[in-house]
Design a protein around this nucleic acid. Structure first.
Lengths: 337, 337
DNA sequence: CTGTTAGCGCCTTCAA
DNA sequence: TTGAAGGCGCTAACAG
């Protein structure tokens, strides 16, 4: 059934090794023989069996990606960047989904093994100490995308800059009373705390503009639209309410918009709102937000993986990707009062 | 470096075959030996090399999924259903993305080969004649999800029913002048024409209720929000404009909503709108729509694949999944005039 | 029940 | 330049 290298050899009247050489572009084949072999390959419509190649090479020709890709739309775009980079290489991509702590632990245990993948790209997780230890000794290179850890090469957006840009934008519009709503800085999933970095950028921007930082304008809570609604309501009921709110995610910004509506505040005339992520809904709702280079992060992660595979990555490298301010309709100049 | 079955055998003081038997739960091993082997396996933290297994078994232990998953959010949910079904099997899932005709053709050519995958699940594509021929002779079972073709086992939503439900809902609210906006029924990508089936349901519902069909209320155009905006504007400028519009996709429904707003029509008091798909934005925009069982379709597709792999699927089977009407805020009883 | 042996299809020395 | 032979790690007869 399956045609093998042996069939090709027979047809071309050469030894198997020669066929193998042709397949692998070895220079040790004379032009005439090469052509004869190539003709035989074409005629038999032969493709080398990947499994056999892998076993023989002692490589899996596979990159595993561990990602919360079903729950986070942003993961999909990153995966796309990886996929496109792998497309014209002999490497396959295996996507391991992670939605629960159990599955994450299981993946960390089962996937990063030399007989499963030649390299592992982890998206949006920061390994803890135990995981770090095991990942470092697993025998395959590990690269982090959308996370940061001193022990690993990583690619991550410039969250501080994102927080800075969002806040600066509001300040430039004349706002001084700027709220910040985010999820809690540390969470049980060990995610890198982006909202913390964004908060740093927020404070930097305030400071740079000489706007006093007011702790009562900063609230944290569980992530989600509902929770953000509550937090925003709280802020907007302050005696001296903020005139602008920067939410650390678009999802939370949606909650802010709803809170404003409930309180009869017009956006952006009464309240300016900035989100973060530029998820699909943001466009529909005309939300001003910060966009990061999702596709590029995956692409870059994959490129770094190939560097690692080639042995050109002896030290961990941290790459930072720029973010972009997307000004839409939920922010406006502060009304003179 | 890599510990093999041979190391285990040595440690347990048995032959390799015995280790293999234990690994594969063969009953031909005495309890004491089995335990000894298991102890050795545990001690060495041994895992059989998947590549070697595959080569030896002559199987890839891999299911390939060909899907437009980066461009269609719905694909992701279907993939999730497949992934979950494969999770506790020895099978890996390889996801092949397809965004262009070139890549689709390339995938159809390269992926469905016995040495690449044991089975192929194709999402949202209907093979044409040439493709059908090659898929049928490729040597691996092929299953269609979200598409239909007489030559293949398939899982698909009940589009006709979806169209029926949407239209019936509007009729029950008192509407008689109901528009239908969709993409063109046949497209160059060879997608199964869902909008055509939905149209059939639309007509059935009209007929069942004795509402006359008016061709001028049905327009087709390229898929997209913009295009739907144009089409809706056209319908709403008719001398006797529709009081309700059923769009064959949520994306198009968004265009309809915008058109209504531009014309100063209130939704739902002046115009009722029903979409299709229940994409994420639909919830935010409070859009009445039809939801299909995306996750279930993937799960079912994978289950059918296992049946095929077990040889229990001699004839193609067509499974139909129910759809669900999601009534939200964009539909209302027709104003008496 | 258990060990030995022969492949699975390919790559890679080692000789020729 | 080319061919023959061994081996990658595992499974599956085939003896014992």
């Amino acid at each position: 059934m399956a045609t093998t290298i042996r069939d090709v050899a027979a047809k071309a009247g050469v030894g198997l090794a020669t066929v193998s050489r042709v397949l692998n572009n070895s220079p040790l084949v004379s032009q005439p023989t090469r052509e004869r072999v190539q003709a035989a390959i074409a005629e038999l419509n032969f493709t080398p069996n990947p499994t056999a190649r892998r076993l023989s090479l002692g490589k899996t020709l596979t990159i595993a990606v561990i990602a919360p890709w079903f729950t986070r739309p942003s993961s999909v775009e990153r995966l796309r960047g990886i996929e496109q980079t792998l497309l014209d290489t002999p490497y396959d991509m295996i996507v391991v989904n992670v939605e629960t702590v159990e599955r994450r632990d299981r993946s960390f245990r089962e996937i990063p093994r030399p007989d499963r993948a030649d390299g592992v790209i982890i998206i949006s997780f920061t390994p803890n100490d135990a995981q770090t230890k095991s990942l470092l000794t697993c025998g395959v290179p590990v690269i982090l995308v959308d996370a940061r850890h001193p022990a690993f090469t990583s690619v991550m957006e410039d969250s501080v800059r994102g927080g800075y840009l969002a806040t600066q934008h509001l300040i430039q519009l004349g706002h001084q009373r700027i709220g910040y709503i985010s999820d809690v800085f540390e969470d049980p999933y060990n995610f890198t705390s982006r909202s913390r970095y964004r908060f740093d950028g927020y404070r930097e921007a305030l400071e740079a503009a000489g706007v006093p930082f007011r702790p009562e304008y900063c609230v944290q809570g569980e992530h989600g639209r509902e929770q953000a609604y509550q937090m925003a309501t709280q802020l907007l009921n302050l005696p001296e309410r903020p005139t602008a709110i920067f939410a650390a995610s678009d999802t939370q910004a949606l909650g802010v918009l709803e809170a404003a509506r409930s309180l009869g505040l017009q956006v952006p005339s009464d309240l300016s709102v900035v989100g973060y992520d530029d998820i699909e809904v943001a466009g529909y709702l005309n939300l001003t937000t910060i966009r990061q280079l999702l596709f590029a992060s995956g692409k870059r992660g994959a490129e770094l993986m190939f560097e690692a595979l080639d042995g050109n990555l002896t030290e961990p490298v941290d790459e930072t990707l720029p973010v972009e301010m997307i000004v839409r309709g939920t922010t406006a100049r502060l009304n003179a009062n």
